[in-house]
Write a protein that binds this DNA or RNA. Structure first.
Length: 448
RNA sequence: GACCCUAUCGUCUAGCGGUUAGGACACUGCCCUUUCACGGCAGCGGCUCGGGUUCGAUUCCCGAUAGGGUCGCCA
């Protein structure tokens, strides 16, 4: 039987990072088994539904590269879709639910109660076979012991999640339900529903949750909980995806950075971890840096310009070649594009903003004659390429009887305002002689 | 309150009865170097506790504790 999995988010206006990982695991399993990855939108809660909210999910998945084989093409619930088991929006599947409710009603498996319709739940414990957790025997809670039946259709006629979710999985032929562990306890209800329809329940695989660094649940207000945080702060999708793979799953051979094709090959349900994982932004940043080092120069420039623009740094005022060269000196240096405005801002500003502490240390009278000498050397330079600049600095240092670093530090501070940054020789060569001399002069003035 | 899941360095993890408990991020030191980053080397740091089972438990069982989840006319 061909594997059919699904990611069934509800359009809440953002894509939770945990949801993104659930989608990823489903996608991986589909690709690993040659199965089908279905995207279904659970928009039963009309109150907080909008096409924009659906688009957020669609865009997020596309950004990650998690293409679905069946599902909506746009956020329009009435729009077209791909796949022959649609509609893929629950809001368009009302008749199905209605028919199923009636079937239950007519067979006495459900009954009306205060305007709502309740499902007659069995009173015994239910065994939940789970591919990740193992067999789980779900006993009734004290409340359920009093009344195990649950509402499947509200008094306003709206069917509830537990019901529509099962009906859709059933009708869409879903073979494996891979979802967050927060659904584990309720799976008993789902299994009972499948049984009521005389259908064998799908295989279940409940994956652990992603928690905050302090162990609390990641909620919308936590920074980093939304995928948008990564799309907007210049992360590379492949890095985010790679990091997500490593939360709750392991290739078991000490690999960290791996291509998706490799993960697809290795990924399987039984080896998914059973305990929750805390989200470690530092490690994601590291991985992102690894990917940023490998992406093409063009892509780096593209993302870099975007990140700078977002920070209010308009690169359009500068020649294309200048921007290109400037960004090239940053590649392999920054871990995330969020660092770029600070790292490379000096390229795109007239005034240099000095790091106060460094200025105190480097802009001292003792350095004045040295920097003055360096300025002179630069001024006399015919060719202003990086090699010439470096040679001039080295020659000056030698003449002065000091190590290169003695000149490098104040020069860097003068030209960039920072104590670290791109290769000094290259950056000086890029901003050009005029600006360099100007900045050295400004620094000289501050040395007393 | 009841039910369910979980428990290896700070974090992500390898381990599946006998290991000097391995790797990665972070952190510290050194080397390389025009700064930083990268890279290289070294270091710091862990099996929640208590009972069993066993010749022997991080590993198996039970309990406790802790964390997470669920018990809705939310999804």
């Amino acid at each position: 039987m061909k594997v059919r999995v699904r990611f069934a988010p509800s359009p809440t206006g953002y894509l939770h990072i945990g949801g993104a990982r659930t989608a990823l695991f489903n996608w991986l399993y589909a690709r690993h088994t040659g199965g089908t990855f279905v995207l279904r939108i659970e928009d039963t809660d009309a109150a907080r539904n909008s096409q924009e909210a659906v688009d957020v999910i669609l865009q997020g998945l596309r950004w990650l590269g998690l293409e679905w084989d069946e599902g909506p093409i746009s956020g329009d619930a009435t729009g077209s879709s791909k796949g022959d088991r649609g509609p893929y929006f629950q809001s368009q599947r009302r008749e199905n639910y209605q028919r199923r409710v009636e079937a239950l009603l007519s067979r006495g498996l459900a009954y009306e109660h205060e305007g709502a319709i309740k499902f007659k739940m069995q009173r015994e414990a239910i065994l939940i076979p789970d591919l990740v957790v193992g067999d789980v025997k779900r006993e009734l809670t004290d409340r359920e012991a009093v009344d195990p039946d649950f509402v499947i259709v509200r008094s306003d006629g709206q069917p509830v999640f537990h019901f529509v979710n099962v009906i859709d999985d059933l009708e869409m032929g879903i073979t494996h339900v891979i979802r967050g562990e927060d659904h584990l306890s309720n799976t008993a209800k789902h299994i009972a529903l499948f049984n009521a329809f005389g259908v064998k329940p799908p295989h279940y695989a409940h994956i652990p949750l992603i928690l905050n660094q302090d162990g609390s649940k990641m909620s919308k207000r936590d920074t980093g909980a939304s995928l948008a945080h990564y799309t907007e702060n210049g992360y590379a999708p492949e890095a985010v995806l790679n990091y997500l793979c490593l939360l709750g799953w392991s290739p078991k051979n000490n690999r960290e950075k791996m291509a998706m094709s490799e993960v697809v090959e290795l990924f399987d349900l039984p080896q998914i971890l059973r305990h929750n994982a805390k989200f470690d932004l530092e490690k994601l940043n590291w991985l992102n840096g690894e990917y940023l080092r490998d992406i093409t120069d063009d892509r780096f420039r593209e993302l870099g310009v975007h990140a700078l623009a977002k920070a209010g740094v308009d690169t359009n005022k500068y020649p294309v070649d200048y921007v290109k060269s400037a960004l090239d000196t940053c590649k392999g240096k920054v871990k995330t594009f969020g660092e770029l405005p600070t790292y490379a801002g000096f390229y795109f500003r007239d005034e240099v903003v000095y790091d106060a502490e460094a200025a105190k240390k480097d802009f001292v009278p003792e350095n004045k004659p040295r920097v003055a000498k360096l300025r002179e050397a630069f001024a006399n330079l015919g060719s202003f390429d990086a090699d010439s600049v470096g040679a001039a600095l080295a020659a000056t240092a030698k003449e002065l009887g000091v190590k290169n670093g003695v000149l490098v530090h104040p020069a860097r501070l003068a030209c960039t305002g920072n104590i670290s940054g791109p290769s000094l020789y290259h950056l000086i060569s890029i901003i050009g002689k005029e600006k360099t001399l100007h900045r050295l002069d400004a620094a000289l003035q501050r040395m007393g």
